[in-house]
């Protein structure tokens, strides 16, 4: 019998994948933005976050890192890690133990650092990145994939699509990811019909991706 999963657990795994991917995607950008704020454009951080729907104000590059990680907005690293951790706790039986432990540690690290009276520097961003890489590694070490692995992976890919669309990347890249999502969906759902994406508009594409997820996880 295929691995059993309830809709809630499948959804938790999917969102776990999405939040981890979102953390990683933002952290990768932070490195580049940090340099650009220092060398090229002091406003580069604000422009990036505006595309995520966040108004971000900061004094300098170091302050930018602090506000990005711990500021009062929905894309701060603490909140993303908290959400990833909550989804992991609920679905912990279906997540590799080491990966589960890593997200617990990661949140604890962020929580501890958020109370630190000194502002963080870029080394701290690297420390989080290292843990996220380790986390993906733990999730991928099994040779045989189970349904739960696919839900995490789909979450990761959907987040990639979403993030890239919001940042205005080309649709060809998005198309490749959508192909991969369809391949996994076909493994999870009998008689899964691959629906072609019609939209070129960002919002239309996002809606079509969400519709795919609704077809995989029955309400």
């Amino acid at each position: 019998m295929n691995q059993l999963l309830t809709a809630t657990t499948a959804s938790n795994l999917y969102w776990f994948g999405r939040y981890i991917e979102r953390m990683e995607a933002i952290l990768i950008e932070l490195s580049d933005l940090f340099d650009r704020i220092v060398d090229v454009d002091a406003n580069a951080g604000s422009l990036f976050y505006a595309r995520l729907g966040v108004t971000l104000e900061y004094k300098d590059a170091r302050d930018f890192i602090n506000v990005a990680l711990f500021g009062d907005h929905h894309a701060n690293m603490m909140r993303l890690a908290y959400n990833a951790r909550e989804n992991a706790i609920i679905s912990r039986n279906y997540i590799d133990a080491e990966a589960f432990g890593t997200i617990i540690e990661l949140y604890r690290l962020l929580e501890h650092e958020s109370k630190n009276m000194y502002t963080v520097d870029f080394d701290f961003v690297d420390a989080i990145m290292t843990r996220i890489s380790a986390l993906w590694g733990s999730l991928n070490h099994r040779l045989k994939r189970r349904n739960s692995d696919y839900f995490i992976r789909i979450g990761k890919l959907v987040e990639k699509v979403d993030f890239n669309l919001r940042q205005g990347c080309d649709n060809e890249f998005v198309g490749v990811i959508l192909e991969e999502i369809d391949t996994m969906a076909a493994l999870l759902v009998e008689d899964y019909v691959r629906a072609k994406t019609s939209g070129v508009e960002r919002d239309t594409l996002i809606a079509e991706v969400n519709a795919k997820i609704d077809r995989i996880i029955a309400p």
Partner: peptide, 8 residues
């Protein structure tokens, strides 16, 4: 009693 799987 039934368990509800994600696919219905």
């Amino acid at each position: 009693l039934y368990y509800k799987n994600y696919n219905g």
